[in-house]
Amino acid sequence: MLAPERRNRIMQILNEHKQLLVKDVSLELGVSEGTLRNDLKILEEDGLLERTHGGAVLPKPHTPEYTFQSRSLTNQEEKKMIGKAAAKLVQNGQCLILDASSTSLELARHLVHYDYLTVITNGLATAQELTRNPHISVIVVGGVLRPGSSSLEGLLGKGLLGQIHADVFFTSAHGFTVTAGLSDFSIYEAELKKTMISNVSKVVALLDHSKLNRRSIASFAETSQIDTIITDPGADREFLDELEGVEIIIAD
Rank of each mutant, 00 (worst) to 15 (best):
A3Y: 07
I10V: 14
Q19T: 03
V31S: 02
L43C: 15
D46P: 00
G47E: 02
L58A: 04
L58Y: 00
T63A: 10
S72L: 12
N75V: 00
E77Y: 07
K79T: 00
M81K: 15
M81G: 11
I82K: 12
A86W: 03
V90M: 03
N92G: 04
N92A: 10
N92M: 00
G93M: 11
L98S: 13
L105V: 08
L105D: 04
L105W: 13
L107K: 04
L107G: 01
R109H: 02
H110A: 01
L111N: 06
V112P: 01
Y114Q: 12
Y114G: 01
L117Q: 09
T121A: 01
T126V: 15
A127I: 10
L130F: 02
I136N: 02
I136L: 11
S137D: 07
L145Y: 11
P147Y: 07
G148Q: 14
S149W: 09
L156S: 13
K158S: 13
G159P: 01
A173P: 09
A173Y: 08
L182V: 06
I187V: 15
I187S: 11
E191I: 00
E191H: 04
V200A: 07
S219R: 05
A221I: 02
T223E: 07
G234D: 08
A235W: 12
D236F: 10
E242Y: 09
G245Q: 02
G245S: 01
V246D: 12
